[in-house]
Structures are given as structure tokens and as C-alpha cells.
């Protein structure tokens, strides 16, 4: 992976990795908007004047944009230091929590958008809380890759 053109180019450039990191972090803010606006509503917080399904539908395009931005900046960073990541526990924690987080916010939310329940329930509260916890773990583990030797 590190021998790929992208991996080599990022590693050899002084500016590429820092800029990718910085844009990845801007993507995190957008992801935070799409995840939090929806999950807070599921927990009965935030934008409660609209139905949970309506808020989740509003989040969807920004969620997609944020995930694309994260992948577009994250994958080149991974390619530039694949071996370091392979030996970093934090990387595997991130890769373990990312798929369920994505599944819950993409497929799990789609179900609620279709059903459009009138308000939040115990089940939606749990879904929102689990999603926030999963994404917090993804973000913290991601930051910790940088602290790994």
C-alpha cells in the first residue's frame, strides 16, 4: 500500500499530509453537524419542532458529503503510512467502530425516514445515543493514531 503512487506522493511531500489532516478535521465538523443534528433529535433534543424523520432526511445529503470528504482525505493518509497503522491499536479500534457507525447512521436512519414516526421513543433514544458513542469512539481512536509511535 505504501508503494502506491498516492502513498509515495503523500509521504514525500512536506505539505500533503498536514493539509489532508486539516481537511479531514474540517470534514469531521461537517460530519458532526449531520450526526449530531439527527441523533440529538432521536434523543428528544435539539430540533424538536420537526419530526425525527424530517430532521434525519435534512441531514442525509450533508452526511453523504462528509463521509465522502473523510474517505477522500483519510484513504491517502492511510496509504502514506499503512505499516504504522497496521501496528497501531487505535487504527483497528477505528476500523472496528466505523462500519457499525456508518450502518447505523445510513441504513438505520433510512428505516426511520421511511416510517416517519411522529416523535421520539425509547428505541430512537437508544439508537441516537449508540450512534453518538460509536462516532465519538471513531473520532477519538482516529486522533489517537497520530499519537501512536
Amino acid at each position: 500500500m505504501e508503494a502506491t503512487g498516492v502513498g509515495t506522493a503523500v509521504r514525500q511531500s512536506v505539505w500533503a499530509f498536514p493539509i489532508l489532516e486539516a481537511v479531514h478535521l474540517v470534514g469531521l465538523a461537517l460530519l458532526g453537524a449531520a450526526v449530531l443534528a439527527g441523533d440529538l433529535r432521536l434523543m428528544g433534543l435539539g430540533l424538536i419542532s420537526a419530526s425525527p424523520g424530517a430532521v434525519l432526511a435534512h441531514c442525509r445529503p450533508w452526511l453523504a458529503a462528509a463521509v465522502i470528504a473523510m474517505a477522500a482525505t483519510g484513504i491517502p493518509m492511510l496509504l502514506s503510512e499503512a505499516v504504522k497503522c497496521y501496528y497501531a491499536t487505535a487504527f483497528w479500534v477505528k476500523m472496528g467502530t466505523l462500519p457499525p457507525a456508518l450502518a447505523l447512521t445510513w441504513a438505520g436512519r433510512r428505516r426511520l425516514i421511511r416510517q416517519d414516526p411522529p416523535g421520539h421513543t425509547g428505541a430512537t433514544r437508544v439508537q441516537g445515543a449508540v450512534s453518538v458513542l460509536l462516532w465519538l469512539t471513531v473520532a477519538a481512536a482516529g486522533r489517537w493514531i497520530g499519537f501512536s509511535a
Binding site: A29, G32, L36
Partner: peptide, 25 residues
């Protein structure tokens, strides 16, 4: 870093609405 998601994330929700490109209902 996680504060970025909470602070800027919720700022962005408001800005998207003010710009008329998100949460428009």
C-alpha cells in the same frame, strides 16, 4: 478535537439553515 464536532458541528447546522441550503423546513 471532539469539541470541534460538537461546537463547529452545531454551528454548521445553523449556518446551513441561514444560507438556505439545509434544514429548510
Amino acid at each position: 478535537v471532539m469539541g470541534v464536532a460538537l461546537f463547529l458541528g452545531t454551528v454548521i447546522v445553523g449556518d446551513l439553515r441561514l444560507a438556505g441550503i439545509g434544514f429548510t423546513s
